[in-house]
Simulated scan of single mutants.
Amino acid sequence: MTRYSEDLHHFEHKLKNTFDDFLKKIGLYNSDDENREGNCNEKRIIYFSPRLDFHENDKEYVILTELPGIEKEEIRVELKDDDRVLNISGEIKQDEKLEKGKAHLLERRYGRFHRSIVLSENVNPDGITANFHDGVLKLIILKQEPTKTKKVSIL
């Protein structure tokens, strides 16, 4: 049996309000969330970052990203040459047939996702391959020789 603590209850309430305020500021809070306790038929996640693994060897970088429940045509992978930022984004939609029924438990993620990774200068922007199989996006990014530093003589 756990003893009720009014201080703990107030702390928990204050923490929840602080988190809700943060979500409102960044635009991820739905005003309907306040009245949806116990209602599993509503979508709760609007935006999320998928999990990934980032590996490196002598010749390449390998990025594995978990994206279950999405078609490869719905995934966008972009690399901006000027700032070396790799962006992975898209949207996972809930099955419309399931939206109409009564849900008892919703634990899967639905909504827009976005993940950005800053790569080092030795990335070859033309040497990127992508493969999507069994809900895992695999990116292989080849390395290139770093530009050699040239010593300049002062006259």
Rank of each mutant, 00 (worst) to 15 (best):
V123P: 00
L105K: 13
L155I: 11
R115P: 00
L139I: 01
D83W: 01
D32E: 12
K138C: 12
E91M: 06
D7E: 08
F22T: 00
F113G: 06
E73F: 07
D134A: 15
R44M: 13
I45T: 14
L23F: 04
T2C: 07
N131V: 14
Q144E: 14
H13D: 09
N122E: 05
L155H: 15
I63E: 07
S89G: 04
N39M: 07
I63S: 07
D134P: 07
N122Y: 02
E96V: 13
Y29C: 00
R36G: 07
L28A: 11
I154E: 15
E56Q: 05
E99H: 06
L86G: 02
H13I: 02
S31C: 02
S116G: 05
K59I: 01
V118W: 00
E6V: 00
L142N: 13
G135V: 08
L137Q: 09
T18Q: 08
R115S: 04
T18E: 10
E121V: 01
G27P: 00
K102E: 14
N131L: 14
K16R: 13
R76C: 05
N35Y: 03
S31Y: 05
D83I: 03
S5C: 08
E91F: 02
Q94T: 12
L142S: 12
R115L: 01
E121N: 07
E91Q: 06
E107S: 12
T149C: 06
G101C: 11
N124R: 08
L15N: 10
E12D: 09
N131W: 11
L28T: 09
A130F: 03
I128N: 10
F54S: 02
D33T: 04
V85E: 07
H10E: 14
M1T: 13
Q94H: 10
K100P: 04
V152A: 15
R112C: 04
I141D: 09
R109H: 15
N124S: 13
A103L: 15
L28S: 11
G90R: 01
R51G: 11
E99V: 10
H114A: 03
L98I: 15
E6A: 02
K43Y: 10
K25W: 00
G111D: 04
D83Q: 03
H133N: 15
